[in-house]
Write a protein that binds this DNA or RNA. Structure first.
Lengths: 167, 167
DNA sequence: TCAACTTTGTTGACGAATCATCTAACTGAT
DNA sequence: ATCAGTTAGATGATTCGTCAACAAAGTTGA
């Protein structure tokens, strides 16, 4: 599996630098699948519930939090978003009335909490979203291949962690 | 009361609407893997070569085209981008000197072609990109699982096409 | 107590993506 | 030839995401 025939200098004409046919196909198909799947999921959710993927991600995290409230940086950790993106997006969601900032007794930065409208929005959207993920992803792939996919995801993430890049 | 299992109609209270543990895990892991993988790929390419994922996608298509030139709508078909996104992005790439618009003999809309600088940019970046995709994706997953993944992608795309949504 | 440092969060500017709209060119039928 | 319908492409407004800089606390240490 390792690439034998390593040369002294990388060159664009050197086949070893490139993906072979199968890898190429797998990669392109993966890219296409991901793009299509997300186009469908997002479009659905946007059209039916007015929630973007970003909105949804925030609100799922909030709704699963112990008391329905989290500090902004905790949201940042679970979503892996940049803090500025998070800040900007929370401001917009606050203006739309989906979340609010509430100061807890002590004088730390405020918690982010779902408003009643916000909670209604996810609980309204979640079933349809779950159903879509199920039919288009989980059921389409099927249990055996899904298990393999999960392994593959682990393998990729391990490779990312071990191989150079601390990101 | 609402907990009894509906048989005839789908319902939000029906367990069948939700993802089970395994599906849930698979989906979240997939989301996380994709996010991490792309963060690494894009960051690398951006940092080392100043090319975004979008730039790269355009230029790969152009470099593989018969005579290194394509009509804009052909690029649109192979990238699956919206035409306005394509138009905006091509304008920016043109301003950066990566591509140019060239009118071919007859009076149709101009072809999009790589400039010398543009060609140099991909041929410079492509090996590193291919190597990254290989180590982080193809080799990490391994040939057997990669084959299964490819099947899964096909299955998802079929499901998307058959099931309602014309997108 | 004071200064350096880290953590948490905000802001503004700019690049990128989407949507709706608009234009020009091609197609084809009368 | 002309009018309608489609296709290819551009544009502007709006929104989203990133980057860099900033600010306000909290922490550590002399």
């Amino acid at each position: 599996m390792t690439r034998q025939r390593a040369r002294t200098m990388p060159s664009v004409t050197d086949d070893d630098m490139w993906l072979d046919e199968t890898e190429q196909l797998a990669w392109r198909k993966y890219l296409q699948m991901h793009r299509l799947l997300f186009a469908h999921l997002i479009q659905h959710q946007q059209r039916e519930f007015g929630l973007s993927a970003a909105d949804y991600e925030i609100m799922v995290n909030l709704s699963e939090a112990p008391r329905g409230r989290m500090r902004a940086f905790e949201l940042g950790e679970s979503t892996l978003w940049e803090k500025s993106r998070l800040s900007h997006h929370l401001k917009r969601m606050e203006q739309r009335g989906l979340v609010c900032r509430e100061v807890t007794g002590n004088s730390r930065s405020p918690d982010i909490a779902l408003t009643a409208a916000g909670r209604a929005a996810i609980t309204g959207a979640a079933p349809a979203h779950a159903a879509n993920v199920r039919t288009w992803f989980a059921e389409a792939i099927g249990p055996e291949r899904l298990a393999v996919l999960t392994e593959s995801c682990d393998a990729v993430m391990e490779a990312l962690e071990s191989h150079d890049c601390p990101l």
